[in-house]
Design a protein around this nucleic acid. Structure first.
Lengths: 194, 194
DNA sequence: CTGATAACGGACCGCACATTCCAAAATAAG
DNA sequence: CTTATTTTGGAATGTGCGGTCCGTTATCAG
């Protein structure tokens, strides 16, 4: 009946995610997207709506595919505390890397750039954080049940503290040149789990 | 010899700071600045250079005048730990407030929005963080000397951890609606000082 | 093969932005 | 008072943006 699409919408969305992730919302122009996705302007609009809608779709995709392996460790049976430590250390390592300077966490970036004046973006950020906090919380509860964590510790506030810390790591990593700073901060926070 | 300025450059800079602080760099237009400062476009350019230079001057002003009273407590003689706790709690309270959603910490905002692709802004952010870390560090060293903090704790990594945490508080506060989250996170982190 | 349909690329549009220009106004020195 | 000098507000400029339009091209049903 009609001509078929010449590009893979899924791959295009992934490419858009990469670009938004690296440069942010405002700094990414439609011309950049046309170049990077390798498809025509009109096709982008026909497929994804407008720039804002495309950004939200990219954010959704990031949230869905965002490191399922690492976070999966948090809910795997067995010792829970090592998984929590691994997640925090991973955040710190990424925050300290040179590459981080240019990318960071897409959710953190969205929180800082869009959340204050964009409700639909803020909602998604909130969902992501809620998700991570819940994952950390249940891992800590499990750790407590398994005797890895003292009974007098509060898993809820520990999870919140780790969540806030990870977001801080990403922000500090964006402008701080000294990798030791984020590493020290993470290790110090992890002593709360001893 | 010539006509005198009709406005106070210092007050104008303060007004520019307020605007940049509330809306960020990109979202603030020169037209907004003209309205808010109450002076003409040409006068702004003649006095401050261009938009970017004005932002940097506003950032410098923020760093100079940024809450000297609160941070001054950190170096005042007497018990040091209560001052550290007060600073962290202040950060948390501001991050949890409704107003925070719209302002946040100007340095944190700059780190997230400009630092990745603006070296001169990144340098100033780095200086501010270095300053806060140093203040916290020397307060903790003093606390240790005065027997308020156990000798086996490391003031350097504690200071770094608190610095990263405060930045995380500001970012999370920007998009998270639950004030308890940042409050719990801060209190949990402060138990590291017990 | 044929025609209806949808995707394609690139030209195009209106707008908003940062920056500059200019004529009028106001000041201070002589 | 006169004149040189600077400020001032508003108009003008040029650029780059997000979004749309349209002629062309490819696909599929019959």
């Amino acid at each position: 009946m009609a001509r078929t699409k010449e590009f893979d919408p899924d791959a295009a969305l992934q490419a858009a995610l990469e670009l938004f992730w690296r440069r942010g919302y405002e700094a990414t122009t439609m011309a950049n997207l046309v170049d990077h996705l390798g498809i025509g302007r009109a096709s982008i609009y026909a497929t994804f709506g407008n720039k804002h809608a495309l950004y939200l779709k990219a954010l959704d995709r990031y949230a869905e595919t965002g490191n399922p392996r690492l976070l999966g460790e948090l809910s795997r049976p067995g010792p829970a505390l090592p998984a929590v430590r691994a997640v925090v250390r991973r955040f710190a390592a990424e925050a300290a890397s040179e590459e981080e300077r240019l990318t960071g966490c897409f959710v953190t970036n969205t929180a800082a750039e869009l959340a204050p004046h964009d409700d639909s973006a803020a909602r998604r950020v909130e969902v992501s954080w809620e998700h991570l906090e819940t994952l950390l919380h249940s891992a800590l509860v499990r750790a407590q049940a398994q005797g890895e964590l003292a009974d007098d510790r509060d898993p809820r506030s520990l999870a919140r503290m780790l969540l806030v810390l990870t977001q801080g790591l990403r922000v500090v990593g964006k402008a701080s040149s000294d990798p030791a700073r984020v590493r020290d901060a993470a290790e110090e926070a992890l002593t709360l789990l001893d």
